Simulated scan of single mutants.
Amino acid sequence: MTEEMFVQISDCKLYAKLVGENTGKPTVIMDAGYGDFSKAWDSVIEDISILSNILIYDRAGLGKSEKGSNPRTSREMVKELKELLIKAKIQPPYILVGHSFGGVNMRMFATEYPNEVCGLILVDSTPEDYRERFLSTMSQEFQQAYNKQFVLEGNYDEFMESLKQLKETRLKLHIPLIVLSAGKKAHYSIESQELWNEMQREIREISSNGEWVIAENSAHYIQNDEPEVVVSAIKKMIDLI
């Protein structure tokens, strides 16, 4: 089954696609990284759709979704996703999967709606202290390139505001959590990679039931470099629930 839809929320229409065999298992909701949209999951969607229904969508202003007037911060994105799920009649409980910045959104969604979420998978997700603890250790060239990327969806300040929101709303979760981290990041020194691993390992601590997995041969897009790692994590989560 594949159902494509344009769902009216607040002041714009969001594109979403529901894929899968209705197995009676929780629906998997997938959120892509900064500036990315639903196509970011193409490499894994077919394999996951055998396990359960999946909802992928384009955040406002990306892919096939209309641009909205709300600030491009995680708090607004979580509200918009919640409205999308209600309007599209996608019933909880949900397994949330977030890549990179999408992981920030999914962590906040799990904190905001704890009774609707039964599992969380973070795919090389951005830690809340990324700027202070990680970005500051990188070369000027890396930092400049990083700052210049914020033109697709919200600006640098909105992105950093999202990390601040994540820090402020952080609560201990009591749902299964799987943290997947990239073990072969591009342009990282040995020290940078070790720091990244450490920060990813610490994300595991946000749940009383957390697991941390390093995708040894992956750069940032684990779903492209080692799709089986992402599929296996989702399968494990579905089997747990």
Rank of each mutant, 00 (worst) to 15 (best):
G210S: 01
I214C: 04
M199H: 04
F109S: 06
E158P: 07
L135C: 08
L180E: 00
E83V: 05
D157A: 14
M138D: 11
R72P: 11
F109P: 07
L96Y: 06
V117G: 03
K67E: 15
G68D: 10
T73N: 08
Y156I: 04
A145S: 15
E194T: 13
N70T: 14
W196N: 05
A145V: 13
F101E: 06
L177K: 04
G102F: 05
N197P: 06
I121W: 03
K79E: 14
A182G: 05
I121Y: 03
Q91G: 01
K164G: 00
E116C: 06
T73H: 01
Q149C: 12
P71A: 12
K164W: 10
S74D: 01
N209Q: 13
G98N: 07
K79G: 10
E141D: 15
E202W: 02
S69A: 14
H187N: 15
Y188E: 06
T73L: 02
P92I: 00
K82N: 12
L195K: 15
L173S: 07
Y146M: 11
L84K: 08
V151W: 05
E153H: 15
G154P: 06
S192D: 15
T169L: 12
L173V: 02
V97F: 07
P92A: 03
Q144N: 14
S181W: 12
P114K: 01
K82M: 01
F109V: 08
G183Y: 01
V78P: 05
L135A: 12
N115E: 10
Y188A: 09
K164T: 08
A88V: 02
A110V: 07
A186D: 13
A88T: 03
E83D: 10
V123W: 05
L120R: 15
S189E: 04
T169M: 13
T111E: 15
S100P: 06
G119Q: 07
V123G: 02
V117K: 09
K89H: 09
E128C: 10
P92R: 05
L173N: 00
Q149N: 11
E158I: 05
P71Y: 11
L163E: 09
M108H: 04
Y156R: 09
Q149M: 14
G102K: 11
N105K: 07
F101I: 03
